[in-house]
Nucleic acid binder design. Sequence first.
DNA 1: CTATGTGAATGGGTTCACAGCT
DNA 2: AGCTGTGAACCCATTCACATAG
Lengths: 242, 242
Amino acid sequence: MAEVPTAAISRLVTYLRILEQLEGQDISRTSSTDLAERAGVSAFQVRKDLAYFGRFGTRGMGYTVPILKRELMRVLGLNQTWNVVIVGVGRLGQAIANYPGASDYQFQYVGLFDVSPELVGRQVRDLTVRHIDELRDFVRGNKVDMGFLAVPPERAQDAAQALVDAGVRGILNFAPVVIGPRPPEGRATDQRSVDGNFQQENGDEWRGVIVENVDFLAGMKRLAFYTLNPHLKDSPVPEDPA
Amino acid sequence: MAEVPTAAISRLVTYLRILEQLEGQDISRTSSTDLAERAGVSAFQVRKDLAYFGRFGTRGMGYTVPILKRELMRVLGLNQTWNVVIVGVGRLGQAIANYPGASDYQFQYVGLFDVSPELVGRQVRDLTVRHIDELRDFVRGNKVDMGFLAVPPERAQDAAQALVDAGVRGILNFAPVVIGPRPPEGRATDQRSVDGNFQQENGDEWRGVIVENVDFLAGMKRLAFYTLNPHLKDSPVPEDPA
DNA sequence: CTATGTGAATGGGTTCACAGCT
DNA sequence: AGCTGTGAACCCATTCACATAG
């Protein structure tokens, strides 16, 4: 089903960033070996990842930085405008709204939403924070493509559902919880779909909605684990051989 | 080399979070099927992931929430104290410092560092921001285990190197760049280690240092890609069969 | 001779079926 | 009978070797 490995997409993002850096240094040509070094992967991997989407190089020569950059941007969907709302405008939501770099890729923050009376009405960046009750109409009226979710974990599922009901196609979830179609009511364990994924007839609004998670508490915990068990991590610095 | 899949560790973190939610709801027993539903994975996967680290359930019965929670905390290294410094105390760094939930796991922020004269000396949370020049002595004097890196991308490599030189064992990198042992000086492409990962003789300080990345710009870009190509994503809502 | 692009082989992770306890 | 724990099967991602193009 995934004819392109998920990990390959993450790597493409990295290659693109490297190409931007190269362009900034007025380096106009590169190679799979060079990209591989800078990205911390193998050159095979670079070539294979690119090959999923086309042929962007010249044999014997390598890649032309601006061309490969343009092609990767196209592949990743970064040559078009994305209208984004942020739901949750606490410290994290504001840090996201103000983080530089998003607008470089035509991610435009068009609306900010929260429930807190202290925040609603306030100005953040060039936007006025709205109450989350206005979300649905706003998304429909403003061609919002995706929502960034920066609410406390206990509100994340409801806020995500609101985004989906409103019609966004993608959610970037910063809350440390799994969001998704709400399981049918009932006890924890019952007999439907034995030993596999659950699925249900409600929750169809979620069909086609993409969720990406950015969970830094999880990152902390993974870091703790690998710091205790370094041998379980494929490190950038290879082991001593024999 | 990775006898435990990296993805399994991420899932263990999710299971742990679910167990905490269950405990908060005074639910004392669960099962692989129940955990699987809540985590959005298969029950096979849950059992296999747990099996990498031991036998925590009772056949025919399932798992006892507090026991499994305790065991997962132990496995993940969350039953001990971690002393953490944050390098970069801009909006993002402050949001991290103030984000609730870290201290639940004995992650203790013991030092904050920045270069900006506007920030150094200021009070954030209960800590005074120090100049990054003090990092080395501080890390050595205060048994710092890991560093969270929230500086602008162009400073990330140097700040990471400073953390490593100072002796931290883990880095949680929020900057949208690859950090690691600095490649040897020289042109982009040369002949060492043909077609594979680079490695070098300097950069040995990085040996054993764990780097985890939390890159939300990358998350945005992945989201853009999958929103354009939903069929390439294994969705929580399964496809219509046939 | 160089470096890409790609079918084939390898290896690691997920899925499965069932053995083993309760 | 029920649900965990696990060796084996399967499948997908990475690695490789080489054919191809410049």
